[in-house]
Design a protein around this nucleic acid. Structure first.
Lengths: 344, 344
DNA sequence: CTGAAAGCGCTTACAG
DNA sequence: CTGAAAGCGCTTACAG
């Protein structure tokens, strides 16, 4: 069918079909009305000649490139299942909408060309992961001319479309479960303080305590940074405080906590209950399996792309805010039942 | 500095700077010679006005878009560390070269728009992972107008730049190690027959046997499909043949084999030695840790991008073929030493 | 070193 | 339904 070397332009297709460039364009794009015979003729000719529209030209003329951008300022796809999952979901959904995906995935700050492709032209709109909120070049992107959908709550902007998981409610449910299962000294390992997902989870923890008439105790809170190691360290420092349960603001830190507790010769859940947040694959395979809050990353990515596509088609009505529920998944790292267990 | 809403064009920058569009373009791009004063003036003006070149226009005029495409027809980044690692390496290297990355990652076959972006215009060149060799739309891409770099040996084309790991040599080294450590009945679990990486590993196995004067035995070969489950199944069928070692054509299948052997109450490496291929992170954490052949995926991705950038800059000299060495990593799933062990 | 001009390949009001 | 024309925003020989 198609030849390999030669690049065929719309002009040539039009001439061969005996119509104008305008008509050929319409016949191929199918938006405006063209007579059926002409439409058919042009399509057959285009096919036979191996015509491929030049995306740059189309983009320049129409203002739409057909590509979406995904920005995740992280370098580690392999060790970061969250990022890997998000990329996967966004890529798949974009393909389903016949949109190409421009991926910006790097610890390295990009050079002028790349930065510009994302700010202008090459991409019609952007999905920006919350990991990078605050970095100057990310904020610059949000201010740029393209529609954006943010993943996660932005610390300051409320005027941008956002998809976020219900971190506060999820954390609150997890901590409530710990308390209702008998815990009274519920410790927390927090994540990076500037991250809003962490902030909201901490807030959920505090609310659950308050609603159950328990006081906040600074001695029962230790900061981590969302890594396994930091969870391990934090737990070691918490052990002397004799908590009977600990809520880690994400799963990797919960894994670290589990290890620290095991090394101290204590048992989970009998001596200390542990709950995490994320429901990463690892949560099902720890020993004991981890009670945690599920974050449906696939749904987050899908929703983000869909919100963006809507933004691109209909003019920005008002910025959407989608909140994805975060259900508690109870496994063996906490006791089930309610209130049985160690009673005070 | 920059305003948000208005989009500034080169035309406006030129007018404000009191020069022609051509000169402004030269001043900004820095290729051709422009007087230092003019260059400075234009740059300052452009900056102050918040000018961002329109990539589509630039691409249309210059024929270069500044974006590379990566094609991996797989849907699973999370469960496929190989793909995740490759994406990571390619993304990072592209960013270092100030090239944007268009990612095509999907089981779903893409629609006409996306397919076209990859065939023409929006992307300057392509890195194509071997996973998809054979699929019509992939071959179509290779035939397209853009320079391509293939990852892995293509079954038929030898005229395209290729980065590949030395599968045959790696497999041969692994099997030789099994034999030299005392094995005489060395079984193999093969991968998907159409995949060239599998073919080359099988070839390495056969060569090692031949060089050590051992005969091929069909009863000692079982097909798998690169998944853990298939490795498990294959091993169960091999067990009655009483092999004293097994080479799995990738790590996941080796993991499956390990499990089957364990369930049969046999011990690794004492009863059966096991070797894999890939050196995925999991290889270091199996019980016992897995002897395997290391595939440096990071280097593969980096080399691919660099070969592509070279192809883009210098006109296609002749297609490069880079072969990345694949060293054997000996762990506890095989015995070390040479020839001690079970002697016949 | 600089400018006028042509052109990259398409889309889209505007007339008919 | 169709065509002639303008235009999208840039780059790049070609003259000077």
């Amino acid at each position: 069918v198609a030849g390999s070397g030669r690049i065929v332009t719309l002009e040539e297709v039009a001439r061969t079909s005996g119509v104008s460039r305008a008509t050929a364009s319409r016949a191929l794009n199918g938006r405006a009305r063209v007579s059926p015979e002409v439409r058919n003729r042009v399509r057959i000719v285009a096919n036979a000649m191996g015509y491929r529209p030049n995306p740059a030209a189309r983009s320049l003329a129409s203002g739409r490139s057909g590509a979406l951008g995904l920005v995740i300022p992280t370098g580690h796809l392999v060790e970061d299942p969250y990022a890997a999952h998000l990329v996967e979901a966004v890529a798949e959904t974009a393909t389903c909408h016949d949109q190409a995906l421009m991926l910006w995935l790097a610890r390295v700050e990009p050079g002028p060309v790349v930065r510009n492709e994302f700010r202008t032209g090459l991409v019609d709109g952007l999905v920006i992961s919350g990991v990078g909120f605050g970095a100057a070049w990310i904020e610059d992107l949000i201010d740029g001319p393209h529609p954006c959908v943010l993943i996660g709550r932005h610390p300051t902007r409320t005027d941008v479309a956002t998809i976020e998981v219900d971190n506060a409610a999820g954390a609150k449910a997890a901590v409530a479960h710990l308390i209702e299962t008998g815990a009274r000294r519920v410790a927390i390992i927090t994540g990076p303080p500037e991250r809003t997902d962490n902030q909201d989870r901490v807030q959920g923890y505090e609310e659950a305590l308050a609603e159950h008439g328990l006081d906040l105790d600074d001695a029962l809170a230790r900061p981590g940074d969302f890594t396994v190691e930091s969870g391990y360290e934090a737990m070691r420092q918490l052990l002397p405080q004799a908590p009977d349960a600990v809520f880690a603001a994400n799963d990797p830190m919960a894994v670290g906590a589990l290890r620290a507790i095991g090394e101290a010769g204590l048992s989970v859940p009998d001596d200390i209950m542990v709950a995490g947040f994320d429901d990463l694959p690892v949560a099902a395979t720890t020993d004991p399996p981890l009670t945690t809050v599920r974050q449906d990353i696939g749904l987050v990515g899908e929703s983000a792309v869909e919100a963006l596509v809507r933004l691109l088609d209909d003019d920005p009505t008002d910025p959407e805010r989608v909140v994805i529920p975060a259900p508690l998944v109870v496994r063996q790292s906490t006791r089930s039942g309610n209130g049985r267990g160690r009673s005070p």
